[in-house]
Nucleic acid binder design. Structure first.
Ligand SMILES: NC(=O)c1ccc[n+]([C@@H]2O[C@H](COP(=O)([O-])OP(=O)(O)OC[C@H]3O[C@@H](n4cnc5c(N)ncnc54)[C@H](O)[C@@H]3O)[C@@H](O)[C@H]2O)c1
Ligand SMILES: NC(=O)c1ccc[n+]([C@@H]2O[C@H](COP(=O)([O-])OP(=O)(O)OC[C@H]3O[C@@H](n4cnc5c(N)ncnc54)[C@H](O)[C@@H]3O)[C@@H](O)[C@H]2O)c1
Lengths: 210, 210
DNA sequence: GTGAAATTGCGCACATGCACACAAACGCGC
DNA sequence: GCGCGTTTGTGTGCATGTGCGCAATTTCAC
């Protein structure tokens, strides 16, 4: 690997991908970095530079072929296959996640749901039988899973993550407010709406007080 | 305002705040930037510099008083009062949000729930009567609201946001996958788990393919 | 076929954010 | 009250990321 690709670039690619998907479904065949930039609120130069890390996909004087660029991004991000996902913690949030069509639609197959409550285990949620979290470890050893989505109460997050990581899961989406420790070769993303609210209140306060 | 405070700094303050809250509840009275840094995975210098934008809260040779620093952060972030929040779209996700105790516990009062479905309007969710979204505009004019949480289907997000913004709401937490346009004086945060998954798959692919 | 308009890819300069390192300040033990 | 270990606040250099500007290339009209 000659050049190292910055993480900020990787984080922007899904945004490009999403916009390209929309343009493609609208039948657009060509688009310029200018137009992409306007739509996403970033500079055209930014987009061109980001894409140039991976190849020369555009044509001068014309722009980018929408289906071509979409395919390239698909390959770069690994969205040309399907990924196996499990959800742990099928409470109110977990149920919303399990029923969200946006995951399946984007190549993420929710192959199992896990909970610890005896009242829930065995029931059907969105056509899936909820399994006992006690069987998670054994299941993971039988069937490799790519991504774990964690929606248990915060105090159990680390335990669940440890089980996932020990069984070879290398990507975790953590909905609990607790930070979890993982080895460096595991990707973790935290979703905590309260942190967003708290940074917004700073700005609200600024606007008022001056 | 002599110095401009970078947004990245503001975004880190809630992390510090959360850790300080925990330490405070554990009875800790003093903490060093070293220890804060270890816990959060950032350098001690980073933390000291961030805090120094707002004042000199530490004591050399000792560290920071936990209750003192907690109070300072509370004041800086505007968490010393309460904020009025409404949730629009009381589907599966909206219900999970409405029932999440983490908002009330941090000073965010969910004062009303809105939906468009006649089947939902009038029903009780978590002790709140679901109101008709048609009354949102009029309600906002009567009672000022600080933050709007949007959990409607993506295609209605812009409409709902326009209503909120027109009525003077300056902070929006958008759970839909659609980006929304707002004037520059409105704070918007997007929560889109799919974007996280898609950046994680890039890294997963890297690890496999090399 | 030729000139004009458009748009990419990229070198380069600038801005921003981060970590280091150190003087100044504090607490504690004796 | 003095010296030693600790830790802050900040000046400074460095790395990283962003935007500008332009040559090279392509399209299109006539
Ligand atoms: N509801 C929200 O909008 C929201 C928002 C942000 C964060 N969160 C976080 O998401 C998590 C879940 O929230 P919720 O509202 O769905 O809570 P919930 O109480 O409705 O659901 C939690 C579920 O996890 C199960 N569980 C408990 N321990 C478990 C374990 N060790 N293994 C597997 N399952 C276990 C419980 O049986 C329950 O079904 C919490 O950490 C919460 O802080 C929720
Ligand atoms: N469920 C998830 O985990 C999840 C995850 C990520 C994103 N999202 C997004 O969150 C949003 C809601 O998801 P959901 O699973 O709760 O969907 P849902 O269909 O269960 O709920 C949507 C609710 O919005 C109401 N609604 C529709 N139009 C409205 C309007 N104009 N004003 C007010 N209310 C209106 C509907 O009556 C319904 O009750 C969607 O945009 C979805 O893409 C959901």
């Amino acid at each position: 690997m000659p050049i190292e690709i910055p993480d900020v670039v990787i984080d922007r690619l899904p945004l490009y991908y999403r916009l390209l998907s929309r343009l493609d479904s609208e039948g657009r065949s060509v688009v310029s970095s200018q137009e992409l930039g306007e739509e996403l609120g970033v500079t055209p130069a930014q987009i061109r530079k980001d894409l140039s890390y991976f190849g020369r996909f555009g044509k001068q004087g014309r722009g980018y072929s929408v289906p071509r660029l979409l395919d390239e991004l698909k390959a770069i991000l690994g969205l040309d296959g399907r990924w196996k996902v499990v959800v742990i913690g099928i409470g109110r949030l977990g149920r919303a996640i399990a029923s969200y069509p946006g995951f399946e639609g984007q190549g993420f197959d929710i192959i199992a749901l896990y909970d610890a409550s005896s009242g829930l285990v065995g029931t059907e949620i969105e056509g899936q039988r909820v399994k006992d979290v006690a069987t998670l470890e054994a299941d993971l050893k039988k069937t490799a899973v790519d991504i774990g989505i964690v929606a248990v109460p915060g105090e159990h997050a680390q335990d669940v993550v440890d089980t996932l990581v020990d069984a070879g899961v290398h990507a975790i989406l953590n909905y609990t407010p607790n930070r979890v420790q993982t080895p460096p070769n595991v990707e973790v993303r935290h979703i905590n709406p309260v942190l967003f609210l708290q940074s917004m209140t700073y700005h609200l306060k600024q606007r008022r007080g001056g």
